[in-house]
């Protein structure tokens, strides 16, 4: 997988192995250590972490790199995918946001890399697709990453769009409403 910024997952090899940016060997790159709610540890460049408004504000408030930071509400799997996304997109300048008009949001296409990124989520071993998408969406929302939120919401919309209501309920595991509830909804 191509990463624009260096990233190592410490939980896999069991030791801290911080990569160096090839273009800035002389100047050490600021790193941030993140620990997820299920105790997985990740080290990321400051530039990558700042894709998240949550981390960006935190780094501004603390005026420096804090000690290992525990990220609540985010699992190791989700944070790994988030770092993968942020590492690729950290140099982007064009990012969809809520101020875009509805038409421009709908007309915006998912890029090739993003498409592969989403497909890899879908191919996660045996898990239902939507479960991973929703989990990642929640994590992206919590960490406030506008580009990833848009990608995830667009992907979920694409997943549910051409399907009938019964199938949507099945995919999202929505309990079938009672007749009375159905009547209220119809009204």
């Amino acid at each position: 997988m191509f990463h624009r910024a260096n990233l190592r997952n410490n939980s896999k090899n069991g030791r801290s192995q911080v990569g160096q940016n090839r273009n800035s060997k002389k100047k050490p790159v600021a790193k941030l250590t993140l620990i997820t709610e299920d105790n997985e540890s990740f080290t990321v460049c400051k530039k990558v972490a700042e894709m998240s408004m949550f981390f960006k504000n935190m780094l501004q408030d603390t005026e420096g790199i804090p000690a290992p930071f525990i990220v609540p509400n985010v699992s190791g799997y989700d944070l790994k995918k988030i770092i993968e996304y942020c590492s690729y997109h950290c140099l982007d300048t064009d990012c969809p946001n809520d101020n875009d008009s509805l038409r421009s949001r709908r007309d915006r296409k998912i890029g090739h890399w993003d498409e592969t990124f989403v497909r890899n989520i879908i191919n996660k071993d045996g898990d239902p697709v939507i479960d991973n998408l929703v989990g990642l969406t929640k994590a992206a929302y919590f960490l406030d990453i506008p580009g990833l939120i848009w990608l995830m919401t667009k992907s979920i919309a694409n997943t549910i769009d051409p399907k009938p209501i019964a199938e949507i309920r099945e995919i999202f595991n929505v309990p079938v409403p009672s007749e009375r509830e159905e009547e209220i909804l119809q009204r």
Binding site: R106, T137, Y141, I149, T153, I156, I160, D161
Partner: peptide, 11 residues
Amino acid sequence: ELLRKIFKELP
């Protein structure tokens, strides 16, 4: 809020 964002993307 997330559901609104999803439905905004529906054609």
